[in-house]
Amino acid sequence: MSKFLLFLGCTIPTKQYSYEISVRNVLPKLGVELVDFAEAGCCGFPLKGLNRRAWVYMSARILSIASKKGLPILALCNGCDTSLRKIKDILKHDEALRKEIADLLSNEGIKLDVSAEVYHTLEILHDFVGVEKIKSMVRRSLKGIRIASYPGCHMIRPSDIPHPEDPAEPRKYDAVLNALGAEVGYYPDRGGCCGATMLPYSARHALLIAASKIKTFKEYGFDAVSTSCPYCMEMIDGKQDAARTEVGDESISIPVFYLTQLVGLAIGLEPKELGLNLNISPVEEVLEKLGVSLYE
């Protein structure tokens, strides 16, 4: 099986375009066929505090449409990925809620069926394509570049449901980076939160969380950071300048890449094919080391 429904979620198709561009250009080169999934929309995860039922309904709707199509889902966003997995678990254990959601879905002619398989970008790269195949395709090794893998908190939590990474031993991300030739390394609180979900409550405090993450990457001597969650990217890359200003610490500056952007660079794609001109952080620092120019 190498055909997946491309589930973009909310953040990626409305502002985190570089993730979508890099996925659309990289995955097919690795033998993965992507099928657009325009009728999906929001998974409801950001709205569970407003109405938990709305969240369950929205994710159940997406799973049901995918089940009917008979294709597995590729969720790019950690939030979407966890949301769909968590809903499967919630509905399995709650018959009353299952009935309620089935009734809501019947209003729009959809039969409740959450059996569709769900995979995250990291699983596609590590489990389906495989590190050996990725390694064999590397044309531009990331050798000598020390990259902090920052998978994002919902890649491993809540740990009572299956996740792309093993919550106890999350090693797939680093294995993919190693396959590209990059160095990886330890830093504390790798599964820590980026703070994005605190933005609606207090942008200032959310920035303090992001600033502390970036400071840790610097303190542990990394040249760059990689994430596969659009919310982490939004905070660590997109709001890096704001975080630096908020805490008044000039050392807060580090290149941040989506995992798919790094895979694309390593297999020889050009920066614009990976949306690298849309990253806010100083990705040029790494591109220079690779002898690649962003502006050609």
Partner: peptide, 12 residues
């Protein structure tokens, strides 16, 4: 209560 980032660490 809206300060919660829903990162699920507390549950773990």
């Amino acid at each position: 209560i809206w300060a919660c980032t829903e990162c699920w660490k507390c549950s773990e």
